[in-house]
Design a binder for these strands. Sequence first.
DNA 1: CTGAAAGCGCTAACAT
DNA 2: ATGTTAGCGCTTTCAG
Lengths: 363, 363
Amino acid sequence: MAKGPTVYHVAERAGVSIATVSFTFRQPDKVKASTRDAVLAAAEALGYVPSASARGLARGRTGALGLFAYDYLLDPAHGRREEGIAASVPAPTEGLGNEDLRLFPLYVDEVQRGVELECWRRGQALLVGGGNPENNEAVLSDIAGRVDGLAIFPRSVPSEALARIARRIPVVEVSESDLNADLDHVTVDNESGIRAITEHLLTVHGMTRLMFLGGMPSSDNDHRLQAFLRTLHDAGLSSARGPNYPCGSDERVAEVVRLLCQGGNLPDAIVCATDQDALVVLDTLAAAGVNVPKDVAVTGFDGIAAGRVVRPSLSTVRQPLEQMGRSMVQLLLDRLDNPEKPPANVHLPVRLVVRESCGCQAA
Amino acid sequence: MAKGPTVYHVAERAGVSIATVSFTFRQPDKVKASTRDAVLAAAEALGYVPSASARGLARGRTGALGLFAYDYLLDPAHGRREEGIAASVPAPTEGLGNEDLRLFPLYVDEVQRGVELECWRRGQALLVGGGNPENNEAVLSDIAGRVDGLAIFPRSVPSEALARIARRIPVVEVSESDLNADLDHVTVDNESGIRAITEHLLTVHGMTRLMFLGGMPSSDNDHRLQAFLRTLHDAGLSSARGPNYPCGSDERVAEVVRLLCQGGNLPDAIVCATDQDALVVLDTLAAAGVNVPKDVAVTGFDGIAAGRVVRPSLSTVRQPLEQMGRSMVQLLLDRLDNPEKPPANVHLPVRLVVRESCGCQAA
DNA sequence: CTGAAAGCGCTAACAT
DNA sequence: ATGTTAGCGCTTTCAG
């Protein structure tokens, strides 16, 4: 606690100059063995811990990367995540209601884990910043001042703020984005993912009346919709209904589903833009007494953990979430090495995951 | 990217001194409105972002807190967690095998989330460091040099390394610890938790032959065992067998259970030291064709998410994991304000969570 | 191979 | 209310 020892103390104790101390820590083999041992011993004895601030100042680099972990569930559109994963556990009568599924790790959580694991693997320091409802800007600026590069989630940061930061340090964004075209990106193959799951519905289940449904608008979701329509078109079909996307929120998605139920003419399948949308759809259908997949099939996109646990379990397209996080780190580090190269884009494959909600192995 | 603007640039552009710029950012209301506006405008125009390194150096504080997120699952004793939560998703025949449950958030994950949320809420920067199998020491030292205070998990850091760091910055440890008595701690009421679940078995289910089982040794687990024995004693009973704790690893736990099955005389209930142990027990019993809770009841301790999802779902004692993370942050900040106060200890309550594995609502 | 010295960008007295 | 002036602890030429 007591204002730790500095290079000066170590230098004095080891009987060398501060330059030698510094040098010993960065190029251990460039100093005479005896000197090195003396320095290391002194450092050890004193409990010396190099100050990252001082080093950062001197080197012009902090040596840390940042992740701005905007939490979608703190966003009004999705409602608040419960007080902690798996927190609320009603006593004996507890079942595993679909409404509890928000307690499992989400898209952002898994990507974050990937960022963390990759940083740790490389011995890279990682600053994890979080959206603070109010002063998002201030928080972001603070983070920006602390790191050499920043990873962000789409739409978690206003474009102007982003531009200001990107002028100073490299920024990488996960997911597609029609804005911020100058940033590095990590994206997935939405096209083939939607095509795979849609064709599964068409071919394996012989369905013909499909509809696309999604809540929040995004570039990814836009592309998924387009891919959906193209797939249907290629099969000589058209969408069962005008695509209900973007509805705007979970609430609106539920509303659309309720209307569908009341109307009495459900499509064969509802292809959702994301797993979260699909979970809402599943909830709503269950509440309306509609059987999935018997009366209507439902599919998602993302492959979050909750989809494995719901009943019926969710057929979906899995994104390599952890890998996406790792790739962000990779991209950041690459750009730090080579600031001038044109914006890069790591495009990752996805995988069709067939479970129950499409009608396969309908228990 | 181009070596961002500094206070000097802003000062020049605003026609003031650098001190005024600095002052404007820290005490906005202490400067004349006109000056403030000029400074802010200049900063805005220049895209000024304060350097945390410089500030840290000057103030003697980095303004960030650290979490050393040792991952137990990277530890050989527990085996490696799959490539990402919910990653491995075997096709159509997939059930939700118990072996998949390691994919859900664990004890450490939930505590980490608590630390994050609390830091974000307070606008506190948070550095999340990770165990790197090899150079744990180096990583730790690096983190220590970057933060004003550090939160750690028990036994994730060798005591000597810890001592060195604790000499420089405050360190808070979650869970009980007979070592490191000089650190601040966040603990839970193991005694009443074990007592509650044991008495539930005794009273509600009328069981008499109970045994305690646990893998890894720890102070918490030690205390749980003691509480277990005391509870039995108070009821005029004794342990059905010599307590099998600490077995040492998941493997050894499984082995003990297999022996029990072969021996043919299972106790009425196996009270596990942790949920993780209980999941292993559940797995092993299932593999041996033993029915839970019919043939034997099983209970856990922790309340991790996976316990809700297994079948039979796990009766357990839930720790307020998120709150524990939040309390660590609180403790760190308190100590920074008041370095001299004696070691503090936040002792949190736990809650009995009755599900199926104890025999309640046996489907 | 090692020492001397000049900053890195900002804060905090102390002046004014 | 604002300007002056020392550093904070480390890195990095440049000499020796």
